[in-house]
């Protein structure tokens, strides 16, 4: 009997206070419960190129992002500026959203806007980027232009650590067109490749890494014919000097 009264008493005390107890608990409104947002800016290539035809180019390949693990906004920019002609041989900007699709790969989608010397193009972009087995950084994109032409670009990169600061980077970039876009000199099939070998040294953390290297550019098939018809070359060797810069 005594026990019962005690239990009832205990219940009487506990029950009404239970809801208050729950609502008194702080909610985690500290930033920790929010997804971590991160940003970064990197120029994988920021370089001066000198070709075997005495052509001089300023070239960049940049990347900036902002976002969380699940969703990133990304800008990718590539440019080739012919110093003597004072003209952009290539000027390409992509605005993308990116989300993980597997442990090592992200899918990305967005637009690419090309505004070089000559005709402009706007493309829809769909791609994947990530780390393949054996440490190959790969990036593949599919483009559909406002003219209705489709093309694809494949990019792979491998870093060989000569030491922990002296790094040899090999890169391959290939473009394949599924339809011809004569106006911008793009023929059907494998149209061009760019192969590069750069030896860099991490001078300040991974923020500033100067490098020297060689780059080989080649055009194939109809693309090469179009270039020849316009009096251009189909193959170039460049000596490059530049720096990888990242913040």
């Amino acid at each position: 009997m005594k026990n019962l009264t005690l239990t009832a008493l205990a219940l009487a005390i506990v029950v009404p206070s239970a809801p208050t107890w729950a609502s008194d608990m702080p909610e985690d409104t500290s930033g920790r419960k929010d997804a971590l947002t991160v940003w970064g800016v990197q120029f994988e290539e920021l370089e001066y190129r000198y070709s075997d035809d005495d052509e001089e180019l300023g070239v960049w390949n940049g990347d900036a992002f902002y976002g969380t693990d699940d969703l990133k906004f990304r800008w990718l920019g590539k440019g080739e500026y012919a110093i003597e002609e004072q003209a952009y041989e290539q000027l390409e900007n992509q605005l993308l959203v990116q989300t993980p699709i597997s442990d090592f790969f992200d899918a990305k989608a967005g637009v690419r806007i090309d505004t070089p010397e000559g005709p402009d193009r706007t493309y829809a972009v769909l791609g994947v980027a990530g780390l393949a087995p054996y440490w190959f950084e790969v990036d593949a994109s599919l483009y559909v232009s406002d003219e209705g032409d489709t093309s694809a670009e494949f990019d792979a990169e491998y870093e060989l650590l000569l030491t922990n600061h002296l790094i040899l980077t090999a890169g391959l970039d290939a473009t394949v067109a599924f339809s011809e876009d004569r106006e911008i000199g793009l023929g059907k099939g494998l149209s061009s490749t760019e192969t590069g070998l750069r030896l860099s040294y991490d001078l300040i953390d991974r923020t500033f890494s100067p490098y020297i290297g060689v780059v080989h550019e080649r055009k194939y098939g109809d693309t090469a014919d179009f270039a020849k018809a316009e009096g251009g070359g189909t193959e170039d060797w460049f000596a490059v000097i530049g720096a990888r810069v990242g913040f």
């Binding site: 970064g40 650590l161 000569l162 030491t163 922990n164 600061h165």
Partner: peptide, 14 residues
Amino acid sequence: KKMPDYYNRKQQTV
């Protein structure tokens, strides 16, 4: 977050 091995200078080399 940008580069998980950013600070790792003990990586295996050639």
